[in-house]
């Protein structure tokens, strides 16, 4: 669920664009560096973008009865890091607004900050913190992806609250109201997204573990242990 076109006042659209731009610039620099070093990276990044797009256009099993969808950005942050993920998200969000009318163009900056920067960054930090510990690989993926999803919606709530502070209690109250509305669907959804993406990892590790090794997502020993080879 993204903020839709016209929902944020102009000044807040500009603020979120200004916050998003340095990250995007950093992402483009990283993208160019990666492309210069490894020409095979472009199709893989393109495919990742398409994967996030398809994932977020699929509806999750309607356990909560909501029409929400996974963001898939946690997976991209684990595989390619937060900088590249922000650029991939820019492209995905642009396609989502023009292909599916999800989100919008003036609010693209705000949606990039929530879905492309804060969420993936939070997920990435969780992944880095747990990667070299004894925590099971699938739990690491679960936590990283669930946290990325939750932080995305917390940031969206904050963006809405800053634009429309409550008369009593200001931004904090407004944040509470928006977050409660989101939390009804998003907390179960973040857990389901974590489980689904952990299952995706299980599937990849069973069928194509060389992807994990090539991107150096987890140490080879951890992958072997997850395959039951250790």
């Amino acid at each position: 669920m993204h903020i839709m076109e016209g929902f944020l006042p102009l000044e807040w659209c500009l603020v979120w664009w200004i916050i998003a731009l340095p990250f995007l610039a950093w992402g483009v620099v990283r993208l160019n560096r990666i492309l210069a070093a490894d020409r095979e990276a472009l199709p893989l990044l393109g495919i990742t973008g398409a994967f996030i797009f398809i994932l977020s256009s699929l509806k999750l099993p309607s356990v909560t009865g909501s029409c929400s969808h996974p963001t898939g950005t946690g997976l991209s942050a684990i595989c390619f890091g937060p900088a590249i993920t922000s650029v991939v998200c820019l492209v995905v969000l642009l396609f989502q607004s023009l292909f599916l009318a999800h989100g919008g163009l003036s609010v693209l900056g705000a949606n990039i900050v929530s879905m492309g920067i804060v969420g993936p960054l939070a997920g990435y930090l969780v992944y880095r913190a747990l990667r070299d510990t004894r925590v099971n690989l699938y739990f690491t993926v679960f936590f990283a992806c669930a946290v990325a999803d939750l932080f995305t919606y917390m940031t969206t709530s904050l963006e809405l609250a800053l634009a429309y502070p409550a008369e009593v209690g200001g931004v904090a109250t407004s944040f509470g109201v928006f977050f409660v509305i989101f939390a009804i669907t998003q907390v179960p959804l973040a857990i389901i997204e974590g489980i689904v993406l952990a299952l995706v990892f299980k599937y990849i590790i069973q069928l194509k573990p060389e992807i994990i090794s090539r991107l150096r997502i987890f140490p080879d020993e951890a992958v072997r242990a997850a395959r039951g080879e250790a």
């Binding site: 398809i54 994932l55 999750l60 489980i195 689904v196 299952l199 995706v200 299980k202 599937y203 990849i204």
Partner: peptide, 9 residues
């Protein structure tokens, strides 16, 4: 759904 996403990845 997990299998679907894994297979598509």
């Amino acid at each position: 759904f997990g299998n679907l996403c894994g297979a598509s990845f």
